[in-house]
Design a binder for these strands. Structure first.
Lengths: 331, 331
DNA sequence: TTGTAGGCGTTATCAG
DNA sequence: CTGATAACGCCTACAA
């Protein structure tokens, strides 16, 4: 049995209230008693029961993080940024994986609803999130990351995907490409839609007709990157590709390499996400360097702000971070 | 205020005990009452307060996971394996990052000691772990992963690093290399020591004298991979490299590429960890494919076993998983 | 077959 | 300045 505040009180000859106040510094205690209590605390190696504390204080100092894929390089960077800020503020993180499945997402939210967390950061999966209206009764603040959910309005921290895809497309067009294929993630999530919008805008401004068959959606995974690329090259005669994720880009590169297609001579490529390994492919990849850590930090800061000031129920806040394009040999 | 069991009891005209028993199916309740209670439960959208439940039952159904680097591809795979098994068993996961710093590790363990978790999985950082003897009073079971700690004995799930490094070294020696450099992680952690042991054994058996200056330790990061490689090549005249982590291998490759050194003609390379991107470097990397997900799964299974059967205090169990070498163009 | 009531370890509200 | 004591929400003897 772990040692409790009661044990300390008895051993120090004071009340539990005094012990609690010594621990938390929440009201005046004479130096003498304080010293005595601290001694006993040390001696008995006391550690507060956070469960009991949370139950009583209605604050768990824990936030939930719901990611669609915890082994994605991108989301891992986000998680690290979040963790950094949480640590600095004395919060912990309960991590879950929605596996990009809305049923699992709902299930996890129900778990989080059990007073376990003071706030939630989530990347909403593909699907309709209007269910959050009922599921979540403003029990705790919520910050969306990476994607804006459908059917629910809330604070979010996202990337300027319209602009970065616009820029990337312009770069490709300016290099003379007319058939640029998009290797995208899930359809009808905001990042995918934004990317398509940016692409269309660039094509439109540069006077290039958009061939819808060059816009393909997948699931962010290697295999879909591979197969979409195959289609775009074989059937679509694409001469350039924009990949929405590093993992899909690896799939794309694998296909190109397998077919002996030269980069960038025959097919140019720009990928999202900048990781160390993008420098050592041959040629090195031109990438949209997404500030994943910073996104996590901003989200955590915003969430903690919302936790500390629950009153601020104005219109949802939206933070947009810009990515930068790093030009390398692949285009 | 969230709806409690008391509210349900009042609304359904029964006692809290009955409600609790209906929820948990823990004693007989007449069909009629059961139906009524369930209706109210639905209607009021009740969710149990897991904190209160945990406080009462002394079980939180949550385990802690302490990793040295949550953005490492390898540990991310481990986390995913753990998460998978936990989910299947109705457990949650509290994730923390020790940043390979023993002070942070201690601090996090103290947090975990606060009855928050039913068990802990951790990859011990570089340093002495005898402090665990006092810090941990068998409050909850603990499973170490990836590395065996110094100064503390406990269950662990690790990789057969002696054998895999032995095999890798043999491959390089058999290709005619006599000056094989080791690009390792932290000194005196078990994985590093095991790798050195495997290397020595291979050299010894093949009649090659070990030049100690070819054995270099770092911190698993890109920069140390880069600088160690520079040293090994420039000063050590190494013609082959074994890298202890993917990230260090990227650093190594960056250096080699920068210097225009041909792989594998001038320098051969074998790296730990098999990720998709290792296939698209030029040439594709020969790797020690480490079963990171499986390691996570095994660790979680072992931990849950220990949680459910606390009596088993025999000698610490040690599970060793074998890696397989995937031959590609880099050696 | 169901209800009452005590307690898990804290914090917070009273008194004193 | 400090001590009792009542909650927090749930589970579970024990009673009825």
């Amino acid at each position: 049995m772990a040692v409790t505040i009661k044990d300390i009180a008895k051993a120090a000859g004071v009340s539990t209230a005094t012990v609690s106040h010594v621990i938390n510094g929440t009201r005046f205690v004479s130096e003498e008693i304080k010293k005595k209590v601290n001694e006993v605390l040390q001696e008995k190696n006391y550690h507060p029961n956070l469960l009991a504390r949370s139950l009583r204080s209605q604050k768990s100092k824990t936030i939930g993080l719901l990611l669609p894929d915890i082994s994605s390089f991108y989301f891992t960077g986000v998680a690290e940024g979040i963790e950094k800020v949480l640590r600095k503020n004395g919060y912990h993180m309960l991590l879950s994986n929605s596996h990009d499945d809305i049923e699992i997402e709902k299930e996890m939210i129900n778990v989080f609803n059990s007073q376990l967390i003071d706030g939630l950061i989530m990347a909403p999966v593909y699907g309709n999130h209007s269910y959050l209206q009922q599921t979540l009764n403003g029990q705790y603040p919520l910050v969306f990351i990476d994607r804006k959910p459908k059917g629910y309005n809330g604070d979010c921290v996202v990337l300027e995907n319209i602009k970065s895809t616009y820029d990337a497309t312009c770069i490709l067009i300016d290099k003379g490409h007319k058939r640029i294929g998009l290797v995208l993630g899930f359809p009808s999530i905001s990042t995918t839609e934004d990317r398509i919008a940016g692409y269309r805008q660039a094509c439109h401004e540069r006077g290039i007709a958009v061939d819808e068959s060059l816009i393909k959606t997948g699931d962010f995974k290697y295999d879909s990157g591979f197969s979409i690329t195959k289609e775009l090259i074989e059937n679509g005669q694409a001469t350039a590709l924009f990949c929405a994720s590093d993992t899909m880009a690896i799939g794309a590169l694998s296909y190109l390499r397998e077919k002996g297609i030269k980069i960038p001579e025959q097919v140019a490529i720009i990928s999202s996400n900048d990781f160390k390994w993008t420098q050592i492919t041959n040629p090195p990849l031109t990438v949209v360097s997404q500030p994943s850590q910073e996104l996590g930090e901003k989200a955590a800061e915003l969430l903690i702000l919302n936790i500390k000031h629950p009153g601020n129920k104005k219109k949802p806040k939206e933070i947009r971070l810009v990515s930068t394009i790093v030009l390398r040999g692949s285009c």
